[in-house]
Design a binder for these strands. Structure first.
Lengths: 293, 293
DNA sequence: CGGATTGTTGATAAAGTTCAAACACGGTGG
DNA sequence: CCACCGTGTTTGAACTTTATCAACAATCCG
């Protein structure tokens, strides 16, 4: 299994396990050899790429790098926050919690996402934030963000943009839940996640590690775990995609895209990046999968 | 029928009718007697109230006031935008459009909402924006917003906040579609809308004009119009709420709130404002409904 | 090896959709 | 004034999708 999720960078901790400290990349050149956190931030996003100065500004805003175990709740709804998390390794989620323990996930975050940047303008969140895997995240104090807003308006606009990217994804999730069938919802989610993972080199465009249970997929797609199970079986039997042992393997990307009515415009990826995902990659043909780290 | 939707301010045009020009309020005092557009913006929102200078800044950013007929599409997905709309009178909506003409509404906008402020950082939208009623809106060019970001960081933060309020509502809509039954979805939507309308004096906390068809409610709640019809009948028979002739009348707010599992924290309203909506107002009791216009 | 979590299957029930048809209502034009 | 038309609402019946309940198998982890 090639470097989809290099063990050296993140190890999937057991439910109760302790997160492994994560080794943060370093830039060889640069002022003072600052650790690099911003590498994946807004990567490939149309009209929001960060220049060297902006990355530096973000990197130097980080006051701490923290690790968390898998399946921890990091932020509870209502809590007042004065820092935000920039996800470096692992997966996180945000969910709306019902009193009866019924949860609905509202987003899944991949490395490079500013998970709860929303908390900066809002001061308090309306939902919970948690880890899915063990996680390594950079802590950015809101003071530093306020300073950025104060004297780097263009970077501020890009941070704003990052939060609106989340909003755009939320909208598509509303659409997914409101208009698509169970099969389509799963297909759509796999397509979306494939793209987002690929953007940060965690998918080779057909295959990626997705450490979720079928129950998690149910919380994402508004379905019961049991129904998810049957739907996944169908998708497998239809030779569209398999999901087994936390690995998603897309056998027929055009077919999956078609079924899920997936149109990636809402992710605001640059056309260059999207070009690798069109009708070229069919069936198991191991089609061209370039520029993968 | 008391001043829920004063005819002098907005007249519900027929499907094909022409929008009536809207008379914009004027402030008696103030520099140069500027027309007031910002009056309802972020009204009652926790930690984001606008001071006089900030309102002025917004008012003076408006270059034009435009009216639109009912049921028009104002902005199409993908279109590059250099202005945003501040809704003054009427209702607007945003929706994700499927190729087969199947639509899913992702938000409904009331006066005071910066409908497509998202377009400022994003430059182009991922969804359509349209009118529900005939509408009067102030046009704010992105140049002016950029200037605000440049030299009024605190106001910029509040505009950012306004877009994140939308995101918070999106999340709740995801929850609504993913976790609630048809009856609960409608109940939740009516509760949400009641609050938002009340915040801008378009609901007296129990009753408001909502010029939507049952098909519209279906597009909002991810249901067929037929099912909406049956659900509405149930809600009426259960003495929770009636929806007839575009008027929503809530007979049992606590009951409706309970059924819809409605918790308004995600709307970020000030506690003072929310206080009028708790368990006090029961049944048809015409309970205390103060400070209404 | 043993216990807990996760995945799988079947039977049954509930919720929501689809299709078809009728009804109400406000225009519009004769 | 009335007939007519279109939009929106209401009802019924058959059907599909998804949930629920109840086991049981497989897997993972300690």
């Amino acid at each position: 299994m090639p470097s989809l999720f290099p063990a050296a960078r993140i190890r999937l901790a057991s439910r109760t396990g302790r997160a492994t400290p994560c080794d943060v990349g370093r830039r060889d050149s640069g002022p003072g050899d600052l650790p690099v956190f911003s590498e994946q931030v807004l990567k490939w996003r149309k009209g929001a790429g960060l220049d060297a100065a902006e990355r530096n500004r973000i990197d130097s805003s980080v006051v701490e790098v923290r690790t968390f175990g898998a399946r921890e709740v990091i932020v509870r709804a209502g809590q007042t926050l004065d820092v935000s998390l920039l996800l470096i390794h692992g997966l996180m989620s945000r969910h709306v919690d019902d009193r009866d323990g019924v949860r609905q996930m509202v987003s899944v975050h991949v490395p490079g996402d500013f998970v709860d940047l929303h908390a900066f303008p809002l001061k308090t969140l309306d939902h919970d934030v948690g880890t899915l895997t063990s996680v390594c995240a950079a802590i950015v104090p809101h003071r530093a963000l306020a300073q950025i807003v104060e004297d780097a308006p263009e970077l501020a606009r890009k941070l704003w943009y990052a939060t609106l990217l989340d909003a755009a994804m939320h909208r598509k999730w509303v659409y997914r839940l409101g208009r698509l069938s169970a099969h389509q919802r799963l297909a759509h989610f796999f397509c979306e996640t494939n793209l987002r993972m690929a953007a940060v080199n965690l998918s080779d465009k057909r295959r990626f590690v997705l450490p979720l249970t079928q129950a998690d997929l149910g919380e994402i797609c508004g379905l019961t775990a049991i129904h998810v199970n049957r739907v996944i079986r169908d998708l497998r039997e239809w030779s569209l995609v398999t999901f087994r042992a936390s690995v998603v393997e897309i056998h027929d990307l055009p077919g999956l895209t078609e079924l899920g009515a997936f149109e990636p415009a809402y992710l605001y990826f640059e056309d260059d990046f999207l070009r690798g995902f069109d009708k070229t990659t069919t069936a198991d043909g191991h089609a061209a999968a370039p520029d993968d780290s």
